[in-house]
Simulated scan of single mutants.
Amino acid sequence: MEAPFKPNLKAHELPRETLVDLWHRTTHAHTKLCETWFAAVAEKCGADVADAVALSGWPLRKAGATPKELFFDDLRFIVAATELQPDMLTVADRDQAETPEELSGDRSWFHWLVSASRLRGGKARSRTGKPAWVGSPGRARSFVRGKGIDLGFVVLLKAWQASQGTHASEIDTEAFEQKVSNHYDEKTLALLWNYAALAYMLATDRWYTGVRKRYGDEVAQELEKNVWIDRGAAEHDLSIGQEAMGVTGDDVESLLRSFQFAPGEVGILSVEFELVDENHGIMTHHACPALDRFEHFDDVRLKHCCDICVAGMPISGEMLNRKIECKPLKLPPRVDANDIACRWEYRLRDQS
């Protein structure tokens, strides 16, 4: 008999073998997502453009880095980024386990960034309190904040790429994955999976940014929708949680169980699950990185992100059962500092 649904199930509470499975599925998803983006860009703009965009996002491709080496480079970048911004992590805390030395060592270039950050605001820590846009003049403050996030990310990424030079980090990836399979405990594996989920979703930002620089918002948005909706990236993301958790049902409870460990969902978003009954459930996103980054700063990009969710969330339900209906109960913009990002209701229609 299946265990009762636990809406607050933590990643480190999962069986060790499930966490290992999630890790492997998410690392593979990084490669698959990049391949999907490459195919979409090549079809729309040509293979030469796809090559150029991929190279701008991952300069190590020029040196012949393998997809696995590119993933580990992104993983090490995320480890560095979360040291500066720990609230990027959604299902784990940096202090719940020690980050493996292979992912955090040899970053002398990074020390000055951390030192500068701590001189400005003390030890790096999660943000608390009201978002910067609240108050008067709220929109102006939010614009400055959004611009700061964008510039900070660009500077960090450029510094990272420059520090790596033309050589992939010398990580014995096979030995590392042996440690994942046989050595690391549940809390370490949960932390590694959260890092991996962020690295996986970082791929879309790099592809989108590269296309946007060349062709503008309209083409970048068209391609992102093509990747996530038409080419099935949203469905594949849900299938990661579904298969790793061994979900076989086709009701709303099964859908929520799948969402609980889909890397593009809980791996980057703060999500609350409410199961009313097996055929009725609600998902609340308390925090969203797109909203945090673009609200009152880049309305075009924010609307686009929301449009993808409005299209993609129903597809996720229909993937399990065509009779599962999705309704957005709340969408951006937020009304005040304590408002949620969005809320979604799933119901299974009468199957008679």
Rank of each mutant, 00 (worst) to 15 (best):
P328L: 00
M1I: 08
F77T: 04
Q164A: 15
A311V: 00
K32H: 08
W228Q: 07
E235G: 10
D73R: 12
L191I: 14
L89I: 04
P314I: 01
L331T: 03
F5K: 03
A175S: 08
R94Y: 03
C305K: 00
G146Y: 08
D51Y: 05
A337S: 14
T166A: 13
C45L: 15
A196T: 15
S104M: 13
V49I: 09
A54E: 07
L202W: 05
I315N: 11
K10S: 09
G267T: 11
A197D: 12
G57E: 02
I78V: 15
R139W: 02
V276Y: 10
D307S: 14
V20W: 02
G138T: 11
P67H: 05
K323H: 15
T284Y: 10
S181I: 08
R127N: 12
D48E: 15
R206Y: 08
P332V: 10
T188L: 09
S126V: 01
T18A: 12
C45H: 09
A234N: 13
E295Y: 01
T248G: 00
A203R: 04
A234R: 10
L238T: 09
R334F: 00
P263Q: 03
D298F: 01
S239D: 14
R141I: 05
C326L: 06
V310P: 05
N226E: 15
E102F: 11
G146V: 13
D106W: 09
V227Y: 05
L331P: 00
G267V: 10
T166D: 15
E224H: 05
V41N: 06
V134Y: 00
V271I: 14
L14I: 00
D51F: 05
G152A: 06
V276M: 09
M201E: 08
E224K: 13
G281N: 07
R141L: 11
L189M: 07
A54P: 01
L275C: 05
F38C: 09
R301L: 12
S136V: 14
L60A: 12
L198N: 10
C305M: 06
R61T: 06
